[in-house]
C-alpha cells in the first residue's frame, strides 16, 4: 500500500517535470531564454497589485466554467458546447441590459435581472445540446460543436448588425453600457468582489452537490453506467438533461459576469476560450472538485503571466494555451502510464 503511494507520487512528479521540460524546449525553439521567460510569467502574474487584480478577474469565469463542466463530466457527458453556452449567457445578459437600460428600473435590479438572463441563456443553450442528445440521438460532442459555431455567428451578427455601435460596427463590440450598469468594483480597481464571491460560492455548491448528496451520487451512477443506474431506479435521461441545464446555468453566469463585470458590452469573442480551458482544468483535476480552485488559479496565472512573454519576446499570446495543454496532456499520459505500471506489478 505504502509502495503504491510512492508510485503515484513518482508518476505525478514525473509528468510535471516532463511538462516543464517540454515547455522549456518549446521556449528555446521559439528563441526565448527559458528561465527569464518563466520569471517573466511569474512576475506578470504576481509582480504587482495590478497583475494580481487581473489574475483574480481571470480566475472567476474559469472557476465557473470548470464547475459547470464537472457536473456534465460526472454524468458521463462531454459538454464541448461550453464556449457557446458562455457566449449565449453573455448575449442574453446584454439583451436584458439593453432592454432595461432606458427604463426607470433601479440599476441594481437591472444588473440582477441581466445576470439572471445570462444564467437562463446558458442553460437554454446547454439544454438544447442535451435535448439533441436525449431526443435526437445526436452525440453531445457534435451537438455542442455545432452550437458553438451557431453562437459565434449569432454574436458576430448582433455586434455588426442590430446591436452595432452608432455609425459602424467593429470588432471592439457593442456600445459600452452606462457605468451605473457595471458590477461594483473595489475602489481604484476593476476587480468585482461580487463576481469573485459568486464564482467561489458556485464552486462550493458544486463540490457539496457532487460529493455529499444523493443527486451527485445518482449523477455519477448515470455517468458510470446508465443502464444499471436506470435499473436501480434513477431516471437517467432526466438526470442527463439536468446536468446539462446546471452546467449551462453556471457557464451562462460566467458569460453574464464578463458582460456586467469585465467588458461592459458584448464582444465577438466574449467566451475567450474559458469554456475549453475549463474542460482542461477538470480533466487535470481528474474530476476531483476540491482541486478546481488551486488548479484554475494556476491556469489563470499562466494566462495572465504569459502576456509578458508577448511583450518581451514577441511570443504569440496563444503560447499560454500551448503550455496549459502540454501540462494536461502529459499529466493524463502520466496517469495512463501509472495504471499500466500498477497492472504489471
Amino acid at each position: 500500500m505504502k509502495k503504491k503511494i510512492w508510485v503515484n507520487i513518482a508518476f505525478q512528479v514525473g509528468a510535471l517535470v516532463l511538462a516543464l521540460l517540454s515547455t522549456t524546449l518549446l521556449l528555446l525553439a521559439a528563441g526565448a531564454p527559458p528561465f527569464q521567460a518563466y520569471a517573466a510569467i511569474l512576475k506578470g502574474a504576481f509582480g504587482s497589485a495590478g497583475s494580481l487584480e487581473t489574475l483574480l478577474i481571470t480566475w472567476s469565469p474559469l472557476l465557473l466554467t470548470t464547475a459547470g463542466v464537472l457536473i456534465t463530466f460526472s454524468a458521463g457527458l462531454w459538454n464541448i458546447g461550453v464556449e457557446g453556452q458562455m457566449a449565449m449567457g453573455a448575449i442574453f445578459t446584454t439583451w436584458m441590459l439593453r432592454l432595461l437600460q432606458e427604463t426607470s428600473l433601479p440599476p441594481a435590479l437591472t444588473i440582477v435581472l441581466g445576470i439572471l438572463a445570462g444564467i437562463v441563456g446558458g442553460a437554454l443553450w446547454a439544454g438544447l445540446a442535451g435535448a439533441l442528445k436525449t431526443f435526437g440521438g445526436v452525440n453531445e460532442i457534435f451537438g455542442g460543436l455545432g452550437l458553438n459555431f451557431v453562437s459565434t455567428a449569432l454574436t458576430i451578427y448582433l455586434v455588426f448588425g442590430p446591436w452595432k455601435r452608432p455609425g459602424v460596427g467593429s470588432m471592439s463590440g457593442t456600445e459600452p453600457f452606462d457605468r451605473s450598469l457595471w458590477l461594483p468594483t473595489l475602489p481604484d480597481t476593476e476587480l468585482s468582489l461580487w463576481s469573485l464571491t459568486l464564482s467561489l460560492l458556485a464552486l462550493v455548491i458544486i463540490i457539496v452537490l457532487l460529493r455529499g448528496t444523493h443527486f451527485g451520487l445518482r449523477l455519477k451512477a448515470v455517468g458510470k453506467n446508465p443502464k444499471s443506474a436506470f435499473l436501480m431506479g434513477v431516471p437517467t435521461w432526466q438526470y442527463s438533461m439536468l446536468a446539462f441545464l446546471l452546467c449551462g446555468a453556471l457557464v451562462g453566469l460566467a458569460g453574464a459576469i464578463q458582460v456586467t463585470g469585465v467588458y461592459h458590452r458584448l464582444l465577438p469573442n466574449i467566451s475567450s476560450g474559458y469554456g475549453f480551458l475549463g474542460l482542461l482544468v477538470s480533466m487535470l483535476v481528474n474530476y476531483q472538485a476540491v482541486w478546481v480552485a488551486p488548479v484554475a488559479f494556476f491556469f489563470a496565472a499562466v494566462n495572465v503571466g504569459s502576456i509578458q512573454l508577448q511583450l518581451m519576446y514577441k511570443l504569440d499570446s496563444s503560447f499560454s494555451g500551448v503550455m496549459q495543454s502540454l501540462l494536461v496532456l502529459l499529466v493524463l499520459l502520466g496517469e495512463g502510464a501509472r495504471q499500466r505500471f500498477l497492472r504489471k506489478h
Binding site: T213, H214, L217, A221, K227, S228, A229, L231, M232, G233
Partner: peptide, 28 residues
C-alpha cells in the same frame, strides 16, 4: 456488470443508490 452494477462505483455507493433516498444529503 453491464446492466446491474456500475463499474467504477464502490459497494457503499451502490447501497446508497439502491435505497430510497432519505433527504438531500448522503449520510456516508
Amino acid at each position: 456488470l453491464e446492466e446491474g452494477l456500475a463499474a467504477g462505483l464502490d459497494l457503499t455507493e451502490h447501497f446508497v443508490l439502491a435505497e430510497k433516498p432519505s433527504g438531500f444529503f448522503v449520510n456516508w
